[in-house]
C-alpha cells in the first residue's frame, strides 16, 4: 500500500519538474474574474429565491410573525401529523396537536415511519433556489432530512444570499461539517432527460421564510 503511495507521488513529481516553488502564491494568482458579489437588494433577492425555489417544485411560505401558528397551518394543510424534529429545534416553534419526535438517534425504520421532518436551515441561495443544511442541533443529522417523505425547512430571510460564491464564503466557518445543498425535492432526469420529481429523497419540500 505505502509502495503505491510513494510510486504515485514520485510519478507526479517527475511529471511536474518545472513548476514555481511557491504553490500558495500560484493559487492566489489564479484568475477569478467571475461575479462573487450579488447586486440585488433584499426584496429582489427574496423574490428571486421564491421564483427559483418554485421553479424546481419547492414551495415557499411567508411567516405571519408567529412561527408556531405558521407551522401548524402548513402541516395541517399538508396532512402531516407525526414529525421528526432535530434535538435543538426551538420548542416554542412546535404547535400542539401534532406528534413531534425528537431525533435522538432514532432508528432508520422510525425515520421511515414518520410523516415528515421539520428543521432549521443554514442559508438559502437565491439564484439557484437552493437551501443549505449543515449537521447541527437545529438542522439535525443528514438521515433525518432524507428518509422522511416530507421536509418543512425554516429559513430566515436574512440568511438568503444571491450567488453561489457568496454562499461558499459564508459556509467557510462550518466547512468541515457535513453539508447538504438541496435544490427542490429529489428528482431524476434519467428517463429520456425528462425531470421527474421525487425519487429517493423527500418528495415534498416546503420552505417557511421568517
Amino acid at each position: 500500500m505505502s509502495n503505491s503511495r510513494s510510486a504515485i507521488l514520485a510519478r507526479i513529481r517527475a511529471a511536474n519538474q518545472n513548476r514555481p516553488s511557491d504553490r500558495q502564491q500560484a493559487w492566489a494568482l489564479l484568475p477569478r474574474n467571475y461575479c462573487a458579489q450579488g447586486t440585488l437588494n433584499p426584496t429582489e433577492r427574496l423574490q428571486l429565491f421564491d421564483e427559483r425555489l418554485r421553479h424546481y417544485n419547492g414551495t415557499p411560505f411567508y411567516s405571519t410573525g408567529d412561527v408556531r401558528t405558521d407551522i401548524a397551518k402548513i402541516l395541517s394543510d399538508r396532512g402531516r401529523r407525526t414529525l421528526i424534529v432535530p434535538p435543538g429545534l426551538p420548542a416554542e416553534w412546535l404547535p400542539d396537536g401534532f406528534r413531534f419526535m425528537r431525533d435522538e438517534n432514532l432508528s432508520k425504520q422510525a425515520l421511515d415511519a414518520a410523516d415528515g421532518v421539520v428543521t432549521g436551515c443554514t442559508l438559502g441561495i437565491a439564484l439557484t433556489g437552493t437551501i443549505v443544511l449543515e449537521s447541527s442541533p437545529t438542522q439535525g443529522r443528514r438521515a433525518a432530512t432524507l428518509i422522511p417523505d416530507y421536509h418543512l425547512c425554516i429559513l430566515r430571510k436574512d440568511d438568503i444570499v444571491e450567488l453561489v460564491p457568496e454562499a461558499i464564503r459564508c459556509l467557510e466557518p462550518v466547512k468541515d461539517h457535513p453539508l447538504t445543498f438541496c435544490s427542490g425535492p429529489s428528482a431524476t432526469v434519467d428517463i429520456e432527460m425528462t425531470r421527474v420529481r421525487g425519487v429517493h429523497g423527500p418528495r415534498t419540500l416546503d420552505v417557511l421564510l421568517i
Binding site: L127, P178, F181, C182, S183
Partner: peptide, 12 residues
C-alpha cells in the same frame, strides 16, 4: 442543464 442539481453532499 440545471441551475443546481437537486442534491450536493459535502462531508469530511
Amino acid at each position: 442543464g440545471e441551475r443546481m442539481n437537486p442534491y450536493n453532499s459535502i462531508w469530511t
